[in-house]
Simulated scan of single mutants.
Amino acid sequence: MAAIPNDVRPLSVRVHEQLSADIISGVIKPGSALAQEGVASQYGVSRTPVRDALTQLTLEGLTTLVPGKGYIVNQLDEREIENVFEVRYALESLAVRNAIGSYTPQQLVRLGGLIDETEIVDPEDGDELFRLGRAFHLALVEPAANDYLRGVITSIWNHPIQHRITLTYRQGPDHQAKVIHDHRSILQALKDQDPARAVEVLAHCHDVKDPNRYEHIG
């Protein structure tokens, strides 16, 4: 486990951030037991901020409190991934339909720039691929007039489960090429003001049953 960041934020927030990062990155493996005393000792903090952090992780779906065993790091199963992508697709497709015709030249250039960046990233760099994917999809829905819709989509992308999906699976150059192709197709549909085509391609970005989409690590 990494050390707790030393900054002005409340200790419970920093402990939660580090625990979440260690779970998402796989440093703390699925099925691991997280006892308050043990975590507090490893991080060099008291039990109180650890208890608060573990409670928050449970609310976020990263851990489960099991009587007699403490907090257990949850497995990330295929159904959970499908649920996340199903909701994201429904909301993002609605936002794209809402936004078609409202994209400025600057916004279209921004989307193209994010695709170009994705093209040169190391295909094994999960953190950078997640950052660029998140940035593209949030830029994609930015022109939607519904503030609440955009806010919900942002909250999904900010949820630790979304980040964990990216880092739990090795995506590789084939998947990277597919993402780039899909994103360029979406961008062209936006330029053509073709919402049906944009939403059709967007569906491929959320197709977790595509056998080429994920390869389990290990």
Rank of each mutant, 00 (worst) to 15 (best):
M1Y: 02
A3G: 08
I4V: 12
V8D: 14
R9H: 14
V13F: 15
V13M: 15
H16N: 06
L19W: 06
A21P: 06
I23A: 04
S32Q: 13
E37K: 12
E37H: 13
G38P: 03
G44D: 06
V45G: 08
S46L: 12
R47G: 03
T55H: 13
Q56D: 09
T64K: 15
T64F: 14
V66A: 06
V66Y: 10
K69I: 01
G70C: 05
Y71A: 02
V73Q: 00
N74V: 02
Q75T: 15
L76G: 07
L76I: 03
D77A: 05
I81M: 05
V84I: 10
R88Y: 06
Y89H: 10
S93M: 02
A99R: 05
S102C: 13
P105C: 12
Q107I: 00
L114V: 01
T118Y: 12
E124Y: 14
L129F: 05
L129R: 05
R131H: 05
L132F: 04
L132K: 01
L140P: 14
V141H: 02
A144Q: 01
Y148C: 13
W157G: 01
Q162R: 10
I165K: 06
I165W: 05
T168V: 06
T168M: 06
G172H: 04
D174T: 15
H175K: 09
K178P: 11
I180K: 09
H181F: 11
D182F: 14
H183F: 11
R184I: 09
D194A: 07
R197S: 09
R197G: 02
A198R: 00
V199R: 00
E200W: 13
L202N: 09
A203H: 01
A203C: 04
H206M: 07
P211A: 03
P211H: 01
E215S: 14
G218I: 04
G218L: 08
